[in-house]
């Protein structure tokens, strides 16, 4: 490389990015309640402690329900919006799309607060359902953005050809459009799932007495004795994320290879 300063910067940057994640498993297996160097020995005690935590399981279950629901729902909405925006012209199209995309840049705090006010006013009890509604709001813009590019790259004449060969608009959508945008749908599901799983503010504001994973983990940091178990949990989450991303990427690439399309990035 020509610029040694740039090289150094790149390395420092990567360390800054990934060192904390590497520390997770290090302390998860460290035989000490204190999170500090030097390491004192190997143990799997923290994993057992995590495994026996029923509160944690409840939080995980809530998080999974919320993440799966909001990713599926927002991807469905994204399919409709992306289809409409790439295929049809209608009055007010620009502003409608703008309004759909707005929550992407709106501070989550504002979304959470205003939703909370509305929910309290209409007297809707806070629950998993209200969290899902909030997450739907912030996930949909991402789904629309990802799916729009998938629908955009679809050749219009493919649909016309299927229609010309006797299929109805509905069967054309099922037989031609859906399989060809499938990589986009997988990307969208994955991104929305991750966003929802990570999300803290909305889940905290709108959760009522239902705790999700992010909120639970944050709460545990108040008890120093429980921190090593959190490290163990973090380690498990990192491993699961890597597995999930790899599987999804595999299917996405296979989908692209099968249609002979150019890989337009994805996110890995």
């Amino acid at each position: 490389m020509k610029f040694p300063a740039l090289k150094t910067y790149a390395i420092v940057y990567l360390i800054f990015l990934y060192a904390p994640i590497v520390l997770l498993p290090l302390f998860a297996f460290n035989n000490s309640k204190v999170i500090a160097f030097p390491l004192s020995g190997f143990t799997t005690e923290w994993f057992q402690m995590m495994w026996n935590d029923t509160q944690l399981f409840k939080a995980v279950k809530n998080s999974l329900i919320i993440a799966v629901s909001s990713s599926v729902l927002s991807t469905c909405l994204g399919v409709f919006a992306a289809r409409a925006s790439t295929r049809f012209n209608f009055p007010g199209k620009g502003s409608i799309l703008g309004l759909i995309m707005l929550p992407m840049v709106l501070p989550e705090m504002i979304v959470a607060m205003s939703l909370l006010v509305v929910l309290l006013t209409i007297g809707m009890p806070l629950s998993i359902l209200t969290i899902i509604m909030g997450h739907l709001l912030i996930c949909t813009p991402f789904a629309v953005a990802i799916l729009s590019s998938a629908f955009q790259s679809l050749d219009r004449s493919l649909e016309e050809a299927a229609y010309d060969l006797g299929e109805t608009p509905a069967s054309t959508f099922r037989l031609i459009v859906l399989p060809l945008v499938m990589p986009g749908i997988i990307s969208s599901l994955l991104i929305c799932f991750t966003i929802s799983l990570d999300e803290f503010i909305i889940a905290y504001f709108l959760g009522g007495n239902q705790t999700v994973l992010s909120v639970y983990i944050y709460g545990q940091f108040r008890f120093p004795a429980r921190v090593p178990a959190i490290m163990a949990l973090g380690t498990v989450l990192v491993c699961l994320s890597i597995c999930l991303l790899s599987i999804a990427e595999f299917y996405r690439r296979r989908g692209i290879a099968r249609t002979g399309a150019k890989d337009t990035g994805g996110f890995l």
């Binding site: 050749d155 004449s157 016309e160 050809a161 060809l180 099968r258 249609t259 002979g260």
Partner: peptide, 12 residues
């Protein structure tokens, strides 16, 4: 039936 300019072969 139509033969399209881009051929519109179903790629999948």
């Amino acid at each position: 039936n139509m033969v399209f300019q881009s051929y519109a072969i179903f790629p999948h």
